[in-house]
Structure formats: structure tokens, C-alpha cells
Design a protein around this nucleic acid. Sequence first.
RNA 1: GGACGAUUAGCUCAGUCUGGUUAGAGCGCCACGUUGACAUCGUGGAGGUCACUGGUUCGAGUCCAGUAUCGUCCACCA
Length: 1024
Amino acid sequence: MTDLHKLYDPRSAQEKWLPFWDENGYFDADVVRDKPSHTIMIPLPNVTGALHMGHALNGTLQDLITRYRRMQGHVALWMPGTDHAGIATQAVVERRMLEEEGLTRHDVGREALVNRIWKWKDAYESRILNQLKQLGASCDWRRTRFTLDEICSNAVRRTFFKLFGDGLIYRGKRLVNWDTFLQTAVADDEVFHENINGHFWTFTYPVVDSDERIAFSTTRPETMLGDTAVCVHPSDKRYAHLVGKNVRIPLVDREIPIIADGLLADKELGTGCVKVTPAHDPNDYACGLRNNLEMINILNANGTINENGGEFESLDRYKAREAVVAKMEELGHFVDVEDRQIPIMHSDRSKTPIEPYLSDQWFIRMDNLAQNAMDVVDDGRVSFFPARYAKTYMDWLGEKRDWCISRQLWWGHRIPIWSKTFNGRTTDIPSLEAKAMLAEDGETVVFTDELAEQLSGRYTTTDDGELLLLCVNNGCKELELQLEAAGFEQDEDVLDTWFSSALWPHSTLGWPDLEQNPPLNNEPDASSTSKNNVLDYFYPGSVLVTSRDIITLWVARMVLTGLYNMGDIPFSHVCVHPKILDGFGAGMSKSKGNGVDPLDLIDRYGTDAVRFTIASFAGETQDVRLPISYECPHCEELIDPSHYKLGKLEVVVPKTLKGEFPVPAGEPKPVLVCPNKKCRKESQFSTPLYDADPDVPVARMVSERFEYGRNFCNKLWNASRFAMMNLEGYTSGPVEENDLQLEDRWILSRLSTTATELQVLLDKYQFDAATRVIRDFTWNEFCDWYLEMVKPRLRDDNQRTTAQRVLVTVLESLLKMLHPFAPFITEELWQRLNEMAPERGLPQPIAATESIMIAPWPELPHNWQSSALESRFVRLQETIVAVRNIRAVYNIPLSTPLKLHIRCNDLVAAEMRDVAPQFDNLAKTELGDVGATVQRPSGSAGFALGDADGYIPLEGIIDREAELERQQKERDKLTGFITGHEKKLSNRNFVSKAPDQVVAEVRETLAGLKNQLESVEQIIRDLS
RNA sequence: GGACGAUUAGCUCAGUCUGGUUAGAGCGCCACGUUGACAUCGUGGAGGUCACUGGUUCGAGUCCAGUAUCGUCCACCA
């Protein structure tokens, strides 16, 4: 009848349906004018490494929404792609190059390094895309983009050009976080603070023309070389007489002023006097700007002291620190030193200390751009789910801090600025715009009119007038060649990686090319339309799904550039989902190396199980802890990572992973020994930090939490299997109203109610609640009650037809509702159902689609829902449970038949008789006397339900004492509740102040409880 | 230092927005149960003074204030 195996086999379903969907183009999203579009842009993963469970959560939710909307009739585009991730990727490749070959980027040069990074990118991009595909992601893969590809680069350069032309890009010397190892500026969000043991020195500077000395403290003595003032608080009487005088820096013999600045100096701290090094400290920098102080840079890019450091030149800054201290001591200006914990900024990428450093950078003016991005949230055009995250967004944008967009890296979008040393001939500049000419060493370089036009208004000079800077528009090779010929050079720096990802929602759709659609990867030349209708149709997008840590870095900037380039928001909803933490509560990240590869889990539990479990995590508040174990590849024993030793290296897998996990370099990789005494075999283990050796058994990372999803899938599988085993002779057609039994009406009511609830929850992005609703319906209602109740009718020729039609209807709708959560198993079951019941559904059967992916979302009649019917059913359930309870308490096996008498009113009695066969079916109990006059037979166990009392004669089986005790316990419980209610009702304030409805409810409940109590007491009297 | 979130059963989490009978689920635990949907299962059960202290209210897990602990983000620390 059916060849379904008892266990669902996820692997075979995945292998079968992924290619099927792909070949049929179900993932493809093309413009269909009379259908609504639904667009999700993937939060582009970095190509630094493989995806972890955080990405799997993110991807699952996006695919869930995409499949849901697709079934609802949208053209649902999910745009895939990856991010070059500038500094992160370059750092990974550089680190590996250094470890494996001992080479730095300066050894190999720009071109070779960039080539190496491209190779890395190719490897990881395909690995990432494969991970997404294995997850069932229904992205339009033909549209896969990469932030450095031609389409994206085009958008980057056009945006830069536009910003430059609008005067929103400027260059200036700014204090940046300088990574002396990578020799690059690092963004504020790419640094972390760490306390290290340091010292707190106190020195003095001599006041000029005075015998006085002024004392100050510092943790970085070498910065004295760059001091250009000392500062006191304006109201500090101790120093008031010194303000305006000068001090001499003994080390370099420079005279600097004593100034008063209330923002910098704090009377309570240290000596109350602070030295000012504007070029090497953020606060001092701000102070320097306020007071027009000189800014002396004392560092080279590599962290050594430069020529401004006098005799300390070319010493590393830490060596210089010692030398400076020694010199000051020698000169008699040392006061004291104490040990102190000092928070030091470190680069997230190189893990080395940051130096504040004055350097040339490009900036975007944020005032208006940020304001516009704030306005669209204010007026509700963009909304956050949950709403509180709008605050994060607004607070950050509200600062309107200019965006430093240049990075001293080789991997990224090179800044489209060409510059030339101008030897002071700044007066020639206006003539450039007028004549499109540039005088160069007596020669005249002439730009064509067309090219000159492009440069019109797109130049600037540095503050000192030494450089002429030109911003070059997209792909203008000719102009670039002419510029080169004229001695111009392109800026060495690249753009902040967020610059290109900020454009993602429109760049991927082909902007700024409004003439033709962006090419598809599998048909690169097929872009022949006269208009880019893809951009039109899919922009603005629908919802952005992301985790909260990039609301500022990414979400805000997408809104900002979307408004600037497109004049419209990039998406109307932002769905912020929880973070996946490791078992110790730390966030998973590629750099920490504590990520769990979703493929490991998919391997063990199946994709659908992983997706379903993951969706059940996605609530509104809590982050999700994911404790993991390793699975011994030899015996499948689970190995707890927190206490097990790693073979020969004697390393315990760390409790907290802070990037200090041992990465083997040329050494044998750590080995895990199975704790199972019968096994004791060795294996390597899955880690994102390096690949295991080939041909060695690898212990997968697993997490028992995913058994939740696996068990559910298996339950669904078996319920469907049961249904299909009972479809023999199935015919399609409507059902007669009179043929519908209580359980049919009930399950259809529950189905319709569940579908409504599910839809409401999905529309609010409450995935955790959605999984609960659908799971509870499937397991607790469909399987536990409906299937059990319908079994006898499926064996009865006269009743089978209606039962089959209802059963198939419910199953079909259930599969459809579950498809966005669990695409593979639902497709597998759909296909099998298609073979047995190609036409199905109520109230009117229709032909099923060839794939569940393209099936319409269930729209079930609302009038199926009946709360009266559902409460009637609840009474039946309670009665059955009460009987089962008695069986369990007295240990009466199912093989012993029971008889049940019920005392109740006529209405309930009629209902009970109506479902009499179910007592036998579900509890192996025969329904005996039912009605208002039923008396409790002696020697029986009983139960009271409020509107019905049940008696089960157990003469000879029942233990009178035990039954008495049981009933007394029940009485005490009821008495407690009743006392509580009576107390409430006797409170005059409650009766007068609480809403009438609440009071009435309490009275009603109390009456019910009293009824129950009366019945119980009756039983007790009988027993005694 | 600021912002946001969390603290509920042994574990992982719902429920709090919108206060109202006996606070739920999954896993784990206990007892019983396998000749056809499912042991990745079924039936029944035990297990929680809802972090703490105050307040508001007829009534607080739910609202308010404060405290403690944890997490995340932001800022700062001569």
C-alpha cells in the first residue's frame, strides 16, 4: 500500500527535492506585473569563513518568510550574495600567509595579495552558498552578487561620485584608531577594550621663567614627545597663577603653554593637571581643536617613533616608553610610579593594541543624510519588529557623526580619487575646469571635452594646496589613462566595507543602470530590455531580517543610501531576531571560532529538524544558548566539551572561547578520545578554525536541542504514513454535512483556527509562537486525538469515504502550513500524497500542484470554527483522561475492560451517548448508564468534572482505602480553591470595583467548584 | 558611566504589551505500556513561594520604583 519507512530519512528527501526545485526554477523571481512582489535581501555573509548557526537562524527565517509569501501568491525574491568584508578577510588571509609561509603582505605586494584573497573568496563563497543551499534556502541563485563584483562596484563608484559632487565627501586629517600591525585605520566598532597590567607614572615639567614645576600623570610616557600643552581646570585655584605661562618639555626641549580647559581637565583626578597630546589621544585631540594647539605626530605607521621624537627616533613605541621614563628620571623629573590595570584599545582583527594616530582620511558628512534616515522611522515608513530596536537606530543616527570611509587596505573598492602633487601651482586649478587643461612641466595635457565635462565640479585640493584631487566617474578607462599620463595617481586606500554593503538593496538590482536589467549568472548576455524593470519591481524591498548588532552599521546606512540614491526606503520592515550564543553564553562569531557548522547538525538531524528547531528559538527577547557536544564518529557516543580532554595535547576544550583556542601550526591536530569505555577511539573534531586532516574520522558538533525538531518531523512523517496507509479506495468529492462526526467537525474547526493564528503570528515575525501553534496542533490534536478517533471509521466501509476526505484535507493543509518551516519532508509527503489523492480538499476538492512549493497557502472557511463545538469536545477529552487516570492509578491494563456510568443532565447525556464508541476506542471502556438519575455503584472509582460525574465499578479491583485517600486529596484541593474564591467574593471592594464580568466569572467558577466538591464528598461518604 | 534586554520546574524556554479561576511546553525524571502510524512512541504522574525589596490595585508572574546578578550594544577611563 505504501512503502514509507518507519523513520523519516532526511538525507534522501534533501537529495531528491533540492535539484527538483532548482530544475523547475521555483526559486527564480522574475517580474510578473499583475502579481505583488516580495523582496528580501540577504544580510550578506562575510567571506571570512564558513557560516555558523547564527547565519542558519538568519537564513531559516528569511526562507520561511519567502516560502510563505510565495505560497500566498507573491513573486518572492530572496536575493543571495556575499560581502568582501575588507579588513576581516584581508586579515585572515594575511594571518594564514604569515603562519604558513612566513610572508607579510609587503613581501608579496598588492597585486599578489589581492589575488590570494580572491582565491580565498572563491573557496569560501562557494562553501557559504552551499551551506545555504543545504539549508533549503530558496534564493534566486541566478542573481547571486558579491560586493566586489562589477554590478556592485558600479554602484559604489557612482555613489561616491554623486556624494563627491554634492560636496558630501571631504578629506581631512583625523585621529583614527591605528592598527600598527596591519598598518591600517580601524573603525571604532572594530576595536575592543581589554584591561592589561600597566603603570601610572607621575612626572614634572619645569615652568619657564620660574622655579616651579608642574606635576602630571600618564600611562603612556612616550607621548610626552608629542605634547603641545598642559591643561588644568579653569576653576582650579592650585594652578590659576600658572595659566598662560609655558613649560619646557625636557626630553625635546620644546616650550608649550599651560592652558585651562574644563572639558579635558578634572580637578579630582591625579594631580589635576594633564598633559595634552592632540595627535595621539582622542580627548586631547578634541582639546587641541578647541584651543588651536599644534598637533605633533610622533609615530610612524608601524608604531615606531618618527623624526619628531628626536633622539628616540625609530625606537618602537614600547621601547621608547622605557627610554623616555629613564631619561626623565635621569633629568630629575620623575616623581613616582604605581601599578595599575589599564584598559587598552585593541584591534579586533590583529588583536594588537591600537594607537590613536593622525592620518589622512575620507569622510562623508552625515547631518542631512542621517536626518533623512531618521525621518522615515519617525513617520512609520520603516518599522522595527520588535519596536524597541528603533531606539538603537535613532540614538545612533542622532549623533550624526561623520562617517570615515577610507581604509588603508588592499582588499576592497579602491577610492576613485586621482591626485597629483601640485607644487604650489594652485592658481592653475580654476583654469582646469574652464579649459579642461593641466599644465605639467611645460607640457600641456588636454582632456577631451567629454571627459572634462565629467570632471566638472569634481575636484578639490588638500588643505595645504599641495594635492589636486579628482573624483572619477564609473568605468571611465579613457579618463583614467589620461590622468595617468598626466602624472596623476589613484588613491591607495579602499572604502570601508560597509560602503558597498550599504548599497546592497539597490545595487544588486542593477542601480544605477536604469536601461537594462542586471545580468543573470547563468545567462550573462540576456539583458536586452530598454528599461531596468527589475529595480522598479523589487525595490523597495519588504523586510530585512537581521540580528541587532548591525542595526547601526548596516541597517541605518542602507536606509540612508537608499533614500539618497533611490529616493525611497530600501525596506519597510526590519525584523530583528535573537543571537545564537554558545553553551557558555558568548555570541557565536567567525572571529571567536566558537561557531557551530549547520552542516554538522543537518547531517545528524536533517535540515527540516534544524530549521524547525531554530525557528522555535526565534522569539522577541531572549538570545539562545546552544550547548553542544561532540559525537564520537566510531560509536556515536556524545562527548561533553566542557570537561573532556583532547588527547595528547592535554588541552581541555575551553569553558570560554576567546580566540585563544589552539590552532595547530604544523603540529599534529588535537585529538579527542571517546570516553565510552567500550570505544576509547580517537578522532579529530569539527571546528571553524581549521580543517581536519583528510581521511581522519571527525567528531561532528551536535546539540541535543535539535531532537525537538527531529522528533517532530518523525511524528509528522508517521502520521502522514498512517493516513496514506488508510487511503485505499480514496475518491475525491465533497462530504455530506450529516456524515461529519464530532471529531471531523472538531478537527476542521481546530484546523481553521490554527491556520488563522499561524498567519497572524507569521505576519508579526513571531516565529517561536508560530512553531508552537503548528506543533501543538499537529501533535496534540491531529495525532493524539483525531487520528485515534478516526481509526475505527477508516476500517468501516460505510464510513471510510468521509473519514478519508476529511483526513486528507487536514493533512494537506497541515503540510502546506508546515512547508515554510520544513520544506523537504513536506515536499516528500506532498509528492506521495499526490500519487494517492491527486484531487483533494474541502469544501471543494481541487487538483494538487506538482510541488508543494507552488501550492497556494491554505485559505480555510472561517465558518468551520466553532467554539461551542470545541468546548463540547473538551468535555469529552476530560472524561477520557479521567478514565485513563483511574486506569493508571489502579494499574488496570487495557486488556481489562471497564464500564463507565455518568451522572449528568440530559443535554450532556445525549452528547455522551453520541460518542459512546470513542470510550471503547480511546479508553477500552464501555459507556454504561448515562443520565440525571445515575447512582454511584458501590465499590467503584469516581471522578467529578463539574457538569458530569463518572463512576467506574471496580468491585474486587479497587482498594477502598486508596480510593478514599485519592478522593480526600481531591476534596482538599477543591476546598482550597473554593476558599480562595469565597474570600474574594466576600471582599466588598472586589465585588464593587472589579468589572461585573470578572465577578460573574468568579461566581460561575465557584459554583462549578462547589458542584465538584459535592460530588467528591458524596463519593467519600459512600466509601466510608 | 549610558541604553536595551534577561532572571519563571533539574535543563532550555513560553506566558508579562492588554493584571482576574488551579502559571505552561519540550527535554530530563518516576510508574505503566509494543502482535501494524510513530519507542525519534503512547498513557498517567512528580516537580515552580515566577531573583529580591518596596509600591500601585479589590486583585500582581504580569504595572511602577529600587536592589542584586547575567548578557548585549554604546561611551569613557591623563
